[in-house]
Design a protein around this nucleic acid. Structure first.
Lengths: 190, 190
DNA sequence: CATGGTGACGGCACCAAGTCACATCACCTA
DNA sequence: TAGGTGATGTGACTTGGTGCCGTCACCATG
């Protein structure tokens, strides 16, 4: 029999989400999170660099999915088509479990400025990954940066719609819809 | 003779900028900043809610300038024209002193992820203020949000150019140039 | 079977950010 | 001259976060 239960990381995430929802982010200490997961504070910080990150871990994976998606798009693809391909790859990686926890996650984040700050930063990181990947295709910086922003924006809006209980469409379908709507709105700015 | 020298806030900002530049953000304690300014840690936190904010304080003023600038634009103005008017108002409020400290400020921020996070958040707050002001003019949400993002982007890019020693143009001129370039690039995405 | 290495965890001490209650002193006004 | 006000100082406290060291299970190799 094992000395340690498996999935320590996942237990920490779930414990944190529970406690944050129950008593608020500020009123929850890292020690409480660790204890609920049957671990200690030290172990928590071995898995996550700081308290906030327990809700945002794994975004490097998302950045890579986006970058690879852009790189895999055909040479003939326009910048926005490449972004669409990247969103296809990213959204396809999401699971039903992630959809299930979505509303609680957004609620907790919405209730705390520190978490909003981290969320904003992570979103910017995703856009930066997209822009960098587009740049490697030869897309001019300004164009790449704008197309990347539309992609990040489409992802956020699609996520909001996807996690709604009444939603029937797939995450990928929603992201494509949102990107198309953003493209139309952007062109109409001129 | 006074017990306290005046301009405590300003002294704290200058002390912080100096120390961050000298020995790095992480290696500088709030107590050090306060002592260099002839004050104590408690007083520092009476002026700034946290250590990072000493470099970003005063951005609420910027948000208000943008919002008021949008509101003051003529009814006939397009969303981007309203954004341009807001940028005029904001950029006109900057002083030669702010330009002088710009490079050091950006260098310090570039050297620390925590500060980059706060900078990203503040930038998003500016865009949100713009978008909200546009919404009050009846601009649709999507359009307002995109136009606001172009505005925030133009501001950042113009600031980078403005603080360069070789720069001859005014901040306002640079912001208008950048906004125009972004508009062109956005329309070309279609 | 024995030995030693590795990896995940606990325990503990420590530093610095941030909070709070209370004291102090200059300045202003009656 | 007395009292009020506001900015500051003092010191104790909580908590996020780091670092060092010990412990135990597992695994490989002889």
């Amino acid at each position: 029999m094992a000395r340690w239960e498996p999935n320590a990381r996942e237990r920490l995430v779930l414990a944190a989400l529970d406690l944050f929802a129950e008593q608020g982010y500020d009123n929850t200490t890292v020690t409480q999170i660790a204890n609920r997961a049957g671990l200690t504070k030290t172990t928590f910080f071995r898995h996550f660099p700081d308290k906030r990150e327990v809700l945002f871990a794994g975004q490097e994976v998302h950045s890579r999915l986006l970058a690879d998606g852009v790189a895999a798009a055909p040479d003939s693809a326009t910048p926005l088509e490449a972004v669409a391909a990247a969103l296809d790859a990213l959204t396809a990686s999401f699971t039903a479990e992630q959809r299930e926890f979505g509303p609680r996650l957004l609620t907790v984040i919405a209730g705390n400025p520190e978490l909003q700050e981290r969320a904003t930063f992570k979103r910017a990181a995703l856009a930066a990954a997209l822009a960098s990947a587009l740049g490697k295709r030869g897309v001019p910086d300004l164009t790449a940066s704008l197309a990347a922003d539309l992609g990040a924006r489409a992802f956020d809006r699609a996520f909001d719609r996807w996690i709604e209980p009444s939603s029937q469409q797939t995450f990928t379908e929603l992201a494509r819809e949102e990107l198309q709507a953003l493209r139309t709105a952007a062109v109409a700015l001129g």
